[in-house]
């Protein structure tokens, strides 16, 4: 049943995204794009851009967006609940344990070990978005014919500007949208 599938997918996203922020991206991509096929990778990238520009965490934004696209308003609510329910229960439990023991070395260890794993996962998600915008497909290809050099240049320039000036990501995404948009319309 579709509501159950939505709930279960976002339940997993909610319970497994450690580290906040972009950590949810590989999980959402894996569940929604790869496993369920509810969004294409291009739609998913649009969703990330939209999420960066609207308030609220990306996991909640995705839950609402995917839920309402796939199954209407009820779908949106079911997915969002699936997403917040497990983490809300866990966070209260951890707070309670913390109050009791003060030092939770296992939780600290798990976090320290998951941080590098999450970096690798975010990198993978980033690579598939990069391949999509430069080569038009999810895997990196090496043929020059299919290479979109303008997109590659925009990524490199965008990256250099963020690294050097620490600009708000929203500004980078918006300005690449405007510059890229003008370019693709002219071509």
């Amino acid at each position: 049943m579709i509501f159950w599938q939505l709930f279960w997918s976002f339940f997993q996203i909610g319970i497994l995204s450690f580290g906040g922020g972009l950590a949810a991206i590989p999980l959402i991509q894996n569940q929604i794009v790869d496993i369920r096929g509810w969004l294409s990778i291009a739609e998913f990238t649009d969703l990330i851009a939209i999420s960066e520009m609207t308030p609220g965490p990306i996991a909640i934004n995705s839950a609402t967006f995917v839920g309402s696209t796939v199954a209407g308003p009820v779908g949106a609510i079911v997915s969002t609940l699936g997403c917040v329910l497990p983490s809300s229960l866990i966070v209260v439990t951890i707070a309670w344990l913390f109050g009791k023991y003060k030092d939770l070395y296992i939780i600290r260890g798990v976090l320290a070990g998951l941080r590098p794993a999450v970096v690798a996962l975010i990198l993978s998600a980033g690579l598939s978005i990069l391949s999509l915008s430069v080569w038009g497909e999810k895997e990196i290809s090496l043929s020059a014919d299919s290479t979109d050099f303008a997109a590659a240049a925009l990524i490199v320039i965008g990256l250099l500007i963020i690294r050097k000036f620490k600009i708000n990501p929203i500004i980078i995404i918006l300005s690449s949208g405007i510059i890229g948009g003008v370019y693709y319309l002219i071509i």
Binding site: D46, G126, L154, I155, G158, R163, G180, G181, Y183
Partner: peptide, 22 residues
């Protein structure tokens, strides 16, 4: 066309986060 351009921005932002975290 704008969304296609934004995709490059999203890629740059994600790579930036990965570089900082790594």
């Amino acid at each position: 066309a704008v969304l296609k351009g934004m995709m490059t921005g999203v890629a740059a932002v994600i790579i930036d986060v990965v570089i900082s975290m790594a």
